Amino acid sequence: MKPIVIAVFTARELGFKGNPAAVLLSKSRLSDEEMQDQARKIGMPATSFIVEDKEGNFWVRWFAPDEEIGLCGHGAAAAGIFLSNETGHEKVYLQYEGGTIGVELKGNTFFMTLEGIPLTKKIDVPQAIKDGLRIPILEMYETENKHLIVTDSEVSVAQMKPDFSRLRQSSIFGYAVTGPGDRVDFVSRTLVPHVQQLEDHATGSSHALLVPYWAAKLAKSRMESYQLSPRGGRFFSEWKEGKVVLSGNFEKE
């Protein structure tokens, strides 16, 4: 089956192209090797592999070209949009190893519900990360997913020129670098120096930890944010009862 490619968190009027994911619906479960091989050939930041079980539940796994992704927010959104169109249901649920993700489709806007990712502890910033980012770092936190790095301004996030060779000298896998926004509530970029992609375009899983952090910081439950990657992404979010509801626009590529 030919994959469908859907870009999510787009904003054409801002020049934001969002994050593309390929989606494949399989009649039977593929092996890890088969999924990794297909993801490598497709070459998207993420490929979502969906299979329906005997009870009618849709299970999803995500693969980048070089390895599996434990939680892929933009890949989940693309998979949900695809399934909504396939089944005719406005809201669909995706099962994955970590739980359930709900995706609701209304016109060209989607709504996705994720479990919030709490900060586990504040840590000292490794020298390799200080040298590799070369921006003011106010705080750094560990989570069960990526780390969180807080800087002083939108300008620092936008103008950051990561030295990935230096960043790889820290064993930390990846981090969401964030600061207060000038035009929106906050901005961010997601860096993953140990894998092929290096910087992600528009990252739902990062926002699962960014939204609770900024909701507490700004005393707001509803926010708008930009991911200032080369493609760019716009997110609308709500922090509600331990869950992050992300919404945005999408386009088929």
Results as ranks from 00 to 15, higher is better:
Leu210His: 10
Met44Trp: 12
Pro65Asp: 01
Ala128Leu: 10
Lys243Gly: 07
Val245Trp: 13
Ala39Gln: 02
Tyr96Cys: 00
Glu251Thr: 14
Leu30Cys: 04
Ile172Trp: 14
Leu14Thr: 06
Glu33Ala: 10
Thr113Tyr: 03
Leu198Asp: 14
Lys17Phe: 09
Thr109Gly: 06
Arg222Met: 12
Lys161Val: 08
Glu97Gln: 05
Gln127Pro: 03
Met140Ala: 06
His89Cys: 04
Glu199Asn: 05
Tyr226His: 12
Asp200Tyr: 14
Ala64Glu: 00
Val245Ile: 15
Ser156Thr: 10
Ala64Met: 04
Thr120Cys: 07
Ala128Phe: 09
Thr203Cys: 02
Ser156Pro: 14
Phe63Val: 00
Arg12Phe: 14
Leu191Cys: 05
Phe58Trp: 08
Val8Cys: 02
Leu119His: 09
Gly18Phe: 14
Asp124Lys: 01
Met1Ile: 06
Leu14Ala: 12
Val187Met: 08
Gly99His: 07
Ser170Leu: 11
Thr203Asp: 03
Ala11Asn: 09
Ile129Gly: 08
Ile123Leu: 14
Val245Tyr: 10
Ala11Leu: 11
Gly56Cys: 10
Val8Asp: 01
Thr120Ala: 10
Ala7Gln: 08
Arg40Phe: 03
Ser170Cys: 13
Glu67Cys: 13
Glu13Pro: 06
Val23Ile: 02
Lys220Arg: 13
Phe110Val: 02
Gln196Ser: 13
Glu251His: 11
Phe250Leu: 00
Phe110His: 03
His147Thr: 00
Asn249Pro: 04
Ala22Lys: 01
Leu114Asn: 03
Ser247Met: 12
Gly70Asn: 05
Thr10Gln: 09
Asn249Leu: 09
Lys217Asp: 01
Val23Asp: 00
Leu24Arg: 12
Gly99Tyr: 09
Phe236His: 15
His89Leu: 04
Val184Thr: 10
Val187Arg: 04
Lys91Gly: 08
Lys122Ala: 04
Ala79Arg: 08
Leu14Cys: 12
Gly179Asp: 10
Leu198Arg: 11
Glu68Asp: 04
Glu52Leu: 12
Phe58Thr: 01
Ile135Lys: 05
Asp131Glu: 13
Ala216Ser: 12
Trp62His: 00
Thr190Trp: 15
Arg166Trp: 08
Lys122Gly: 04
Ser205Asp: 01
Ala208Lys: 00
Pro180Cys: 11
Leu119Glu: 10
Glu139Gly: 04
